[in-house]
Nucleic acid binder design. Structure first.
Lengths: 261, 261
DNA sequence: TTATCCAGTTAACCTAAGATAATGTCGGGT
DNA sequence: ACCCGACATTATCTTAGGTTAACTGGATAA
């Protein structure tokens, strides 16, 4: 059982130690994209049973004993990020429970991009070999995986827009809106609140700002009663205001009627 | 025959009016990712034969008579971009000859992201139905398409890094390095020079800067003899210097030994 | 109990880049 | 030869956000 930084907050997955069946976030997520056959579901569940725990701040690329396939986050926060030679760092994506990332050693191997945990995580790896059974283009699983990849791309485009042409306040607001929708989709939000295991420094390198300016902006968001952020818990006090500020439109996440709050 | 803005420069595709066989940029591009069967190649070529011409500045999403599938650029520059309500605009990706983009009406339909031509283009659409024939996960085509998607994702991550934590000079330098490598891979560069049908305004919304600052930065790059940019032609005068300035590492493009210049 | 560490906060100052707008250049159309 | 529109360039002033560094407070460890 992984020990979380913020055990005080009793994250949902601490209460349900062995996710199986419908509370498996991967199955839940993929079924949002396309209906899965019973065979698909049991395939996924059986591979998730082999998930391993990783401590916070751990590079998932380094132990590359696994062949090509996908890497699935079942609990905790992970991220794609890149270090520059200057020491600067940029987070380019978050992986929250139910998210997966395509793992192609041919592609990942040599780049300076890395995938790491942020908080302690449970992560499963499923080889492409294992997926191949139900991998005709017609099956629901194949379609769901394709959709998952398209949503990931759309999210990246949204992030380019975020750092490319939004103000500090808008960037942070947009990120918070996105994270809430994504976490809510896998049952990790309670109303407008959710656990957010990120430091202000993490936020800064996500959103392309300095620590100090993130701090200032968070205070502004608090002062104007958009959010409440204490400890590692974020509550959105004014969804309409925040999403309006950010021009947040959840369509790119393809989660059905999410975003109607 | 599309009329190009810069006919004065006689782009390669003007000299070879009917790309077929090996000078088809799509086939050339995909074969860089995985070996294709003869059936794969003829399939691709036959669909490229139905390509249509589009003038510059044309939204490719609007005429959505085609079903899901991929959209292939054979000639010209296109881009993904997004308008904000404020009128601001952000380009999130370029599509150059040989590039494709997955077209999923379920996904694209409602988002505010659009795909448009920049210069006049020849573009083919291939339905997913048509691809399904050789779409077992084992075939080369399927693998090449998957790689293509992974490369697109990696490029997007790189762009997030670009706008997230690089200076104006570095951003532009990085973009130029990337474009050169990509165009060179489909034979559209002659040495270190290539046609670049982008205005400074286009560059600005790509790289998250103002028109004016792009202008200043270009002058600096010219003054320091990194580049020569006149008309719509860019020549990199000092590849080592420019790629070093940008910390450009072409690995993410997965083009074999590209970048060794 | 104190020392240490880490995250968060604040303040003073600085700079890269934005905004605006005037001016220049060039090619195309008439 | 003239005008026009699209880009590019330049100058000016303004501002969002960066940098540095000091200080706080809670949590853990010794």
């Amino acid at each position: 059982m992984p020990r979380h930084l913020n055990t005080a907050f009793a994250a949902p997955w601490d209460l349900a130690p062995t996710p199986g069946g419908d509370d498996n976030p991967l199955v839940r997520r993929l079924e949002g994209f396309a209906p899965l056959s019973q065979a698909d579901r049991t395939l996924l569940l059986s591979h998730c049973a082999n998930a391993r725990s990783y401590p916070a701040q751990t590079d998932l690329a380094r132990d590359r004993e696994e062949p090509d396939g996908i890497l699935v986050v079942l609990e905790g926060f992970a991220c794609w990020h890149q270090y520059r030679q200057t020491g600067a760092r940029q987070i380019t994506a978050y992986l929250v429970p139910g998210d997966l990332c395509e793992w192609d050693t041919a592609l990942i191997g040599r780049t300076d991009h890395a995938v790491s945990t942020i908080s302690p995580c449970r992560i499963a790896r499923i080889s492409r070999e294992a997926l191949r059974n139900s991998y005709g283009a017609q099956t629901g699983l194949a379609k769901a995986l394709r959709m998952s990849s398209l949503v990931y791309e759309a999210t990246l485009r949204e992030w380019v827009v975020n750092v490319g042409c939004r103000t500090a306040l808008e960037r942070i607001a947009h990120l918070f809106c996105e994270l809430h929708v994504r976490l809510d989709a896998v049952g990790l939000a309670s109303g407008l609140g959710f656990d957010l295991p990120l430091t202000q420094g993490d936020l800064a390198v996500t959103v392309g700002l300095s620590n100090v300016h993130v701090n200032r902006s968070l205070q502004a968001l608090r002062r104007d009663r958009f959010i409440d952020l204490r400890g590692r818990r974020l509550t959105i006090l004014d969804w309409a205001g925040l999403s309006n500020l950010a021009e947040f439109n959840p369509g790119y996440l393809r989660l059905g009627r999410a975003g109607e709050r």
